[in-house]
Computed example of a mutant assay.
Amino acid sequence: MNNPGRELSLLVVEDNVFQRKVLMHQLRALGYPMPLAAGDGEAALALCNQHPVDILLCDLRMPGMDGMALLRRLSLNGFRGGIILVSALDEDVVEAVHRMSDAYGLRVLGRLDKPSSPARLAELLARWAPDTRPPLAGSGPHIGVADLTKALAQGEIMPWYQPKVSFATGEWLGVEALSRWLHPTLGMIPPGRFIPLAEEQGLITLLTERLIEQCLQDKAHWQTSGLAIKLSLNISSSSLVEGKLCDRLLEQCRQKGINPNLITLEVTESAFVKDLGHSLEMLSRLRMHGFGLSIDDFGTGYSSMQQLSLLPFTELKLDRSFVDRCHEDPVRLAIIESTLTLARKIGLRTVAEGVEDKATWDELARLGCDECQGYYAGRPMPQDQLLPWHEQWQARAPAR
């Protein structure tokens, strides 16, 4: 079989000699002529240290270092490849291992049952793509408050935009603004490395205000160019209850000729813990002036239902922890379906974040979710890449 992934480095970790030989034979038949093999976790770790491994096929039940211990060690070593869980264990056990792997920051491509099916194996291998995610928040050179203060003063932290599209039609509906630090010597610094620092050092409100100003400037430019898309902005808990966010937003929209109805403010559930009374005041005032309000990461906070009953939201955002691979997980699917039903009954639009493949897209479209946000549609990008992305999306968007 002529396979474009022929040069990928694959490693089979399986203690059963027969099962290991079967997998090796199937991989060669699929066009991967030189897969590596290990009979236990220790040998697999040694091979990963000696060779770059793109995809690791991992048995879970092995003597000595079992598959779960191996996955934890791979995570600690910064493994960036894809992982296929090979197991005859019950579905709930394998699913728990999958969630554990997600928590460790590993990329699981899916489950392969025993005995392995060549068709299923080919399907899982086809999911592999080079890992373009930013490094973990704790990695890289040390960044201090002085570096962050300087970056804010010099405009190094800029908004990038991730498209949001309609599940029903594929239409481009809007974007969410996400912060990116373009450091002059360190390059791209992901938000996981500087947002916590900004919150700890009391700089998050300043950072939020700078980003909002740039976003509204971009939004005004889009309007004059005839691009009628909505803009979603993230609001921190500190920004919500401190300063004069509402007044500044209104003044900037007025100056730039932007209708607040085209702006949605995304607020995480944790924002309400700090000062519920003030949060209610601020959010109600913003809604009164026409801004949309989205409850971000719905279902991950301490009292989701209470917040829906108290606050004037217009949108509910499904957290990626429920969305990811929902088509393979009946529990996640049930949570999503009930949440979408709830949202429809109380008149909220729904957005699914973390949609990364067509199978997830198809399932959420079938369930009637309104908007898609995720790598399947588009990654975060600088504003000057949005129009080229749109042309490409129109060419490949699922059939209407």
Results as ranks from 00 to 15, higher is better:
residue 146 A to F: 11
residue 227 L to Y: 08
residue 186 L to S: 04
residue 256 K to C: 02
residue 185 T to Y: 07
residue 217 Q to M: 12
residue 153 A to V: 08
residue 230 K to T: 07
residue 204 I to K: 09
residue 242 E to T: 14
residue 151 A to W: 05
residue 197 L to H: 06
residue 144 G to R: 05
residue 143 I to M: 15
residue 231 L to D: 01
residue 230 K to W: 04
residue 250 L to M: 12
residue 138 G to F: 15
residue 255 Q to L: 15
residue 166 S to M: 11
residue 177 A to R: 03
residue 217 Q to D: 09
residue 159 P to N: 08
residue 240 L to W: 06
residue 243 G to H: 05
residue 178 L to I: 08
residue 135 P to I: 13
residue 173 L to I: 12
residue 137 A to H: 12
residue 160 W to H: 11
residue 158 M to H: 10
residue 204 I to P: 00
residue 153 A to M: 10
residue 192 G to H: 10
residue 167 F to K: 02
residue 218 D to P: 05
residue 204 I to N: 02
residue 178 L to Q: 01
residue 213 E to H: 15
residue 259 N to F: 11
residue 149 T to S: 14
residue 259 N to M: 09
residue 235 I to G: 04
residue 166 S to T: 04
residue 157 I to V: 13
residue 243 G to Y: 04
residue 151 A to K: 04
residue 201 Q to I: 09
residue 144 G to E: 00
residue 247 D to V: 13
residue 239 S to N: 10
residue 192 G to I: 12
residue 175 V to T: 05
residue 251 E to T: 11
residue 211 L to K: 01
residue 244 K to P: 00
residue 168 A to T: 05
residue 196 P to W: 13
residue 147 D to M: 13
residue 176 E to D: 05
residue 202 G to A: 06
residue 170 G to N: 04
residue 166 S to R: 09
residue 222 W to K: 07
residue 259 N to C: 14
residue 237 S to F: 07
residue 214 Q to F: 07
residue 221 H to C: 13
residue 199 E to A: 09
residue 150 K to W: 08
residue 153 A to P: 04
residue 174 G to I: 07
residue 258 I to P: 02
residue 188 M to N: 06
residue 176 E to G: 09
residue 149 T to P: 04
residue 179 S to D: 00
residue 247 D to M: 08
residue 225 S to R: 15
residue 172 W to T: 06
residue 137 A to T: 06
residue 184 P to G: 07
residue 238 S to V: 11
residue 185 T to M: 12
residue 248 R to A: 02
residue 206 L to S: 09
residue 199 E to V: 11
residue 201 Q to E: 13
residue 218 D to Q: 14
residue 213 E to L: 14
residue 167 F to Y: 10
residue 256 K to V: 04
residue 160 W to G: 02
residue 249 L to A: 07
residue 176 E to W: 12
residue 186 L to W: 09
residue 243 G to E: 01
residue 171 E to F: 13
residue 192 G to R: 14
residue 251 E to K: 14
residue 201 Q to S: 15
residue 257 G to D: 00
residue 241 V to T: 06
residue 178 L to D: 02
residue 148 L to W: 00
residue 248 R to T: 03
residue 233 L to Q: 01
residue 151 A to V: 08
residue 258 I to K: 04
